[in-house]
C-alpha cells in the first residue's frame, strides 16, 4: 500500500506529463519557433549613433527584410525584438527598461555596438552605462563601432538559431 501514497501519485502524474510533453513538444514547439523566427518585429528605439547602420541594414543594399526581420515601424505592443542601438546613457536607461517591460513575451534583445556591450569608446564617461547587461537580459552581442550591416544581419541570424533550439513549454 506504500505505492499509493500522494507523493507517489504526484510522481506518476509528473512522469505522465513529461511523456505527453515529450511526444507533443517536437512538432508543436517546432511550429511555434518557426513562426517566431520569421516574424521578428524590432522596436523602434534608437539610443545612439548605431541607428544609422540599423537604417542602412533595412535599406535596399542590405535589405534585412529577406531574413524575416521587418523594419522597425511596428507598435511597441506587437514587438518581440529589441535592438539596443549603441550607447545607453543614465537618462535613457530607465526608458529602455520601461519599454522592455511593456513588450509582450517572448522577447529578445540584441546589443548592437561596442557601447551597448561594455561602454565602448565612452567607458570613462560620467553619463554612460558600462554595458546594458545591468538593465535588460541580452541574447546576442553584435560587436563593432558601429557594426557593419552585415554584422548586424549575422547577429540576427544567430538569434534565429537560438530561437530555433529554444524548448517550448
Amino acid at each position: 500500500m506504500k505505492n499509493q501514497s500522494p507523493t507517489n501519485f504526484n510522481i506518476w502524474v509528473g512522469k505522465l506529463k513529461e511523456a505527453i510533453v515529450k511526444t507533443i513538444e517536437p512538432p508543436i514547439g517546432y511550429a511555434i519557433n518557426w513562426g517566431r523566427i520569421w516574424s521578428l518585429w524590432p522596436v523602434h528605439l534608437e539610443t545612439a549613433c548605431c541607428s544609422l547602420e540599423f537604417g542602412a541594414a533595412s535599406g535596399p543594399r542590405y535589405d534585412v527584410e529577406r531574413f524575416g526581420i521587418i523594419e522597425a515601424f511596428g507598435s511597441l505592443r506587437q514587438c518581440d525584438l529589441m535592438v539596443i542601438q549603441g550607447t545607453v546613457t543614465r537618462k535613457m536607461a530607465p526608458r529602455v527598461r520601461m519599454i522592455y517591460d511593456q513588450m509582450p513575451d517572448p522577447k529578445y534583445v540584441i546589443a548592437m555596438g561596442a557601447c551597448a556591450i561594455t561602454g565602448g569608446l565612452y567607458f570613462d564617461s560620467y553619463n554612460v552605462l558600462p554595458g546594458i547587461d545591468s538593465i535588460v537580459p541580452v541574447d546576442v552581442y553584435v560587436p563593432g563601432c558601429p557594426p557593419r550591416p552585415e554584422t548586424l544581419i549575422q547577429g540576427c541570424i544567430l538569434l534565429q538559431e537560438k530561437i530555433k533550439y529554444t524548448k517550448f513549454r
Binding site: A48, K91, Y122, S125, N127
Partner: peptide, 26 residues
C-alpha cells in the same frame, strides 16, 4: 539630453590625437 555622453569632458583627459575617434561619433 538622451544621448549626452560628455564628449567635451572626455576631451580633457585624452591628448590631441586620442580625441579623434570619439569626436566623430556624434
Amino acid at each position: 539630453g538622451y544621448v549626452h555622453r560628455g564628449e567635451e569632458k572626455m576631451c580633457e583627459y585624452r591628448n590631441f590625437m586620442q580625441n579623434i575617434p570619439h569626436l566623430e561619433r556624434p
